[in-house]
Design a protein around this nucleic acid. Sequence first.
DNA 1: TATTGTTATACTCTATAACTATA
DNA 2: TATAGTTATAGAGTATAACAATA
Lengths: 139, 139
Amino acid sequence: MAATDSDGQDLIDALVGVSFAAMAVLTRIGAEHDLSLTQVRVLGILRDRRVKMSELAEYMGLDKSTISGLVDRAEKRGLLGRTQNSVDGRVVDVFLTAEGTELAERGAAQVARSLSPMTGRLTRTEASRLTALLETLLR
Amino acid sequence: MAATDSDGQDLIDALVGVSFAAMAVLTRIGAEHDLSLTQVRVLGILRDRRVKMSELAEYMGLDKSTISGLVDRAEKRGLLGRTQNSVDGRVVDVFLTAEGTELAERGAAQVARSLSPMTGRLTRTEASRLTALLETLLR
DNA sequence: TATTGTTATACTCTATAACTATA
DNA sequence: TATAGTTATAGAGTATAACAATA
């Protein structure tokens, strides 16, 4: 095998390593705003959609009872709101408040800045190529 | 700008997306063995080294008191052990037991298998290229 | 009856502060 | 005095089980 060949395990290690690094950045920036990684993710998901409690549970791979608690705490902080769905009375819709939206935007900008020392090591071409490869992984 | 150009935000989104997907896999496989993501990470770190409590805290970005609790629970399950360092009596070294090692090996194989539907979408050349790009990000 | 969501409970993860032991 | 680690405490995240409301 040539030296440029990846043996598969190298790819896994690199993926896991980059993932933990990205999670560390999200955790740190979240902490600056008193948000756990889980809450950061909730804000990220709600940033461009209004969802049902059950959809949020599905997206995040968490139990509905866990979502109730997460939404409780974020709602108490004024970051998001709940409304009863008018079509199906059992359903509760969740959405970002103006304050939650503002925080999500600011956080996203901070994440981009924090990752730029990493992503800045790539040329434009490399960045494009990496984006394409990662998107292939995501389907 | 050409269609193949990445605008920077796309790269961030792809990185974060892949990272959450990787964390989901690690969380799920951990859960099958009654391990939290944090415990999975402890096992991963100890897989190829014996470390001091304080080093573990440093690696993981967690407080030393948190590490005490994590190590307590894993030790109680027989996955790792503590020994007093013979050179500096204040230091406690942590290491995997045979059972912990075995679990870490099995878990790593499971992770590789679970990610293969994702990584399998790439040709050998693409996998090599992706590995190299990710390693560039990691320095 | 089935589905959506909440609540009660128990355990893990996490940091802060106070402590013990060693250097 | 300074450093390494533990313990007590409190709050957040998590799942399971039991429940209420709606379909």
